[in-house]
Amino acid sequence: MSDANDTLQMNDVLAGIEQAFGPESAFTAEPVSEPEKQVLAKVFGDDGYQDYLQDQINRQVIRDYLLNARILGFIDKDQLEEILHRAASFEGRAVLALHMIMRSVEEAWNLAQECGEGSLQVLRPVPGSPPQLELIPQR
């Protein structure tokens, strides 16, 4: 339990997490030329690519969560189908992934119920914020 004077410094937490990961894996097996770097920067810096990357992350979160929940018996086939209906759109996947990150697989049955009732809410910690996780840049 933290002391009342102990404040959570997000940059410090993020720095500690990044440090624990160790060095990043090599992006390519071969050296990249300067013109290639420019093309890569253009592609990977594009908003479309960032949306694609976020959607891929959301898909992986959903896959892992549902596979674990189903294998461990926390949801049945019908409950799985209820959840999967919500995963058909970009925004639906963003909402599901965030809910899944915030819940244990033991709560998957509840998530299925909320999806079936249409009561699964977009989590917006700050009014007007997007319904997906945002990377916090390191300073």
Rank of each mutant, 00 (worst) to 15 (best):
residue 5 N to P: 03
residue 20 A to M: 07
residue 82 E to I: 07
residue 30 E to Q: 10
residue 88 A to F: 06
residue 45 G to K: 02
residue 49 Y to C: 12
residue 23 P to W: 03
residue 13 V to G: 03
residue 10 M to V: 14
residue 7 T to D: 13
residue 47 D to T: 07
residue 45 G to V: 03
residue 12 D to Q: 15
residue 32 V to I: 15
residue 99 H to Q: 09
residue 35 P to M: 01
residue 53 L to T: 10
residue 9 Q to T: 12
residue 42 K to R: 11
residue 133 L to N: 00
residue 42 K to S: 09
residue 21 F to H: 13
residue 86 R to W: 07
residue 76 D to K: 07
residue 71 I to H: 06
residue 32 V to K: 08
residue 35 P to S: 02
residue 60 Q to P: 07
residue 45 G to M: 02
residue 67 L to Q: 10
residue 19 Q to G: 04
residue 124 R to E: 08
residue 55 D to P: 09
residue 135 L to P: 11
residue 131 P to R: 03
residue 76 D to P: 05
residue 71 I to Q: 10
residue 31 P to F: 03
residue 68 N to E: 13
residue 29 A to P: 00
residue 51 D to F: 00
residue 20 A to E: 08
residue 13 V to N: 05
residue 27 F to P: 05
residue 103 R to D: 07
residue 17 I to R: 13
residue 35 P to A: 02
residue 26 A to K: 13
residue 120 L to T: 06
residue 125 P to Q: 12
residue 65 Y to V: 05
residue 70 R to T: 12
residue 7 T to M: 12
residue 120 L to W: 00
residue 38 Q to R: 15
residue 35 P to Q: 00
residue 63 R to W: 13
residue 25 S to K: 15
residue 105 V to C: 02
residue 86 R to N: 05
residue 133 L to M: 05
residue 128 G to S: 03
residue 37 K to I: 09
residue 80 L to Q: 07
residue 19 Q to I: 08
residue 52 Y to S: 08
residue 5 N to H: 13
residue 79 Q to R: 07
residue 101 I to R: 12
residue 75 I to D: 01
residue 129 S to N: 10
residue 8 L to Q: 14
residue 122 V to L: 10
residue 132 Q to A: 10
residue 106 E to H: 11
residue 131 P to C: 04
residue 75 I to M: 07
residue 4 A to S: 15
residue 77 K to G: 05
residue 93 R to P: 12
residue 136 I to L: 10
residue 133 L to Y: 00
residue 62 I to S: 00
residue 98 L to R: 14
residue 8 L to G: 11
residue 128 G to Y: 00
residue 66 L to T: 01
residue 117 E to P: 04
residue 21 F to K: 15
residue 75 I to T: 04
residue 122 V to Q: 10
residue 65 Y to C: 05
residue 20 A to L: 08
residue 10 M to E: 12
residue 15 A to E: 09
residue 98 L to E: 13
residue 41 A to M: 06
residue 135 L to N: 08
residue 100 M to E: 02
residue 63 R to V: 10
residue 27 F to W: 15
residue 103 R to L: 07
residue 1 M to Y: 07
residue 92 G to Q: 01
residue 3 D to C: 04
residue 92 G to E: 02
residue 88 A to M: 08
residue 55 D to G: 08
residue 104 S to G: 15
residue 49 Y to N: 14
residue 34 E to S: 14
residue 23 P to I: 06
residue 55 D to C: 09
residue 46 D to I: 05
residue 92 G to M: 03
residue 72 L to T: 11
residue 113 Q to D: 15
residue 138 Q to L: 13
residue 72 L to S: 14
residue 115 C to K: 01
residue 67 L to R: 13
residue 97 A to W: 00
residue 22 G to Y: 00
residue 97 A to N: 01
residue 21 F to V: 10
residue 93 R to K: 14
residue 55 D to M: 09
residue 113 Q to I: 13
residue 49 Y to S: 11
residue 46 D to N: 14
residue 48 G to C: 02
residue 121 Q to F: 06
residue 24 E to R: 13
residue 113 Q to H: 14
residue 102 M to N: 08
residue 128 G to H: 02
residue 40 L to D: 01
residue 15 A to P: 07
residue 89 S to T: 14
residue 51 D to I: 01
residue 28 T to L: 06
residue 138 Q to Y: 09
residue 91 E to Y: 09
residue 12 D to P: 14
residue 84 L to D: 05
residue 58 N to G: 09
residue 50 Q to C: 03
residue 42 K to N: 06
residue 16 G to A: 12
residue 71 I to P: 02
residue 63 R to M: 10
residue 54 Q to Y: 00
